[in-house]
């Protein structure tokens, strides 16, 4: 009787456990943030509202909104985010249910709006101020006797604020670098000769410096001219933030180009190739020009041809020395 009861209870427990067990999933984070970037011009004394939408397509997680200043880092588009909110611009969340730096529980498939009020106090100096809105998951520790890394994910939306009385900004862009990476370089007299292999794409570095207090948007083209043939590449529109330098890219971007190069130029011709760039920063701004040149030689083709010729010559010499003796 006891065994029967034990079996019934065990079966019941297994059935209940089986029917109520939910799948065991690794906790995944998937966060979306919109708009991805905001650029604004504001007069001192004014305030604006920007509505951000964050969506959780992953598992439930604690989340918090943060505002942090950032500065451009290096010249490849990276940014360095500050650890604390500082600067003259005032930020507040207009939502009643969430506040900055206060974690809230963010359910799966939930969308939340963060209505950010940006206030520019009177007397704030004109110029650019860069911040980033972050939606960051708050890590929770449940180590349980093991060595563990807890991952926290954050998505950010850069906020580029230009404080101006007039709405007119001044572009102070200069070309910092316009150079190619030739296969060989040698100097003859005062002239520098850059030799490139026409069979290999030529790396180009085109960097623009913004010496002003407001961001600039370079527009222009890069042209490769060889004989009568000209190939043109458009510059990818990218912001260059105040007092920073950035390597520009071509549009459409090339996938295999390292982040410290602008493009890989292909289709170079035998002889002189001239590479030029013309760039401006909007209406009523001067056009900046840069130029470099190189001599294209099909080095690989020549090398291969030379090797083939040597081999053929060797075969001919070998054959002539080992001619069979003629019968007299």
């Amino acid at each position: 009787m006891k065994i029967k009861m034990i079996l019934i209870i065990t079966s019941l427990l297994i059935a209940v456990h089986y029917s109520l067990t939910t799948p065991c999933l690794a906790q995944q984070i998937t966060l979306s943030l919109d708009p991805p970037i905001v650029q604004t011009h504001i007069r001192p004394g004014k305030s604006i509202l920007v509505a951000y939408t964050v969506e959780n397509s992953g598992d439930p997680t604690p989340l918090q909104f943060l505002i942090r200043p950032f500065t451009p880092q290096g010249q490849e588009g990276a940014l360095s985010v500050g650890d604390t909110l500082e600067g003259p611009i005032l930020f507040s969340l207009e939502n009643t249910d969430v506040a900055f730096e206060k974690p809230f529980f963010f359910k799966s498939d939930e969308k939340r709006q963060a209505v950010v009020k940006i206030q520019i106090p009177e007397g704030v100096p004109e110029g650019d101020y860069y911040y980033i809105l972050l939606a960051e998951t708050v890590p929770s520790f449940s180590v349980g006797g093991q060595t563990t890394s807890i991952a926290s994910a954050a998505v950010g939306s850069p906020l580029l604020i230009n404080v101006t009385q007039t709405g007119i900004t001044e572009a102070k862009g200069t070309i910092a670098e316009f150079s190619i990476k030739p296969t060989y370089t040698f100097t003859f007299g005062k002239r520098i000769f850059r030799i490139v292999d026409t069979g290999i794409p030529l790396p180009l570095v085109f960097s623009i410096r913004n010496a002003g207090n407001t961001l600039i948007d370079p527009q222009g083209t890069i042209k490769v001219r060889a004989g009568k043939k000209t190939t043109s590449y458009d510059i990818l529109p990218q912001h260059i933030l105040s007092n920073s330098q950035r390597i520009v890219k071509i549009n459409p971007p090339q996938t295999d180009v390292p982040s410290n190069q602008t493009a890989h130029l292909s289709g170079l011709q035998l002889g002189k190739n001239t590479i030029t760039a013309s760039v401006s920063f909007g209406e009523n701004t001067p056009t900046l020009l840069a130029q470099t040149d190189c001599i294209g030689i099909p080095i690989r083709l020549f090398t291969l041809s030379f090797v083939v010729l040597v081999l053929c010559g060797g075969v001919v010499v070998f054959a002539s020395k080992h001619k069979p003796l003629k019968e007299e």
């Binding site: 995944q28 984070i29 998937t30 966060l31 919109d34 397509s57 997680t61 060595t147 890394s149 807890i150």
Partner: peptide, 13 residues
């Protein structure tokens, strides 16, 4: 929207 996804929140060694 810009979306970022992480497959797990924990790496247990």
């Amino acid at each position: 929207p810009f979306t970022f996804s992480l497959s797990n929140t924990k790496v247990d060694f």
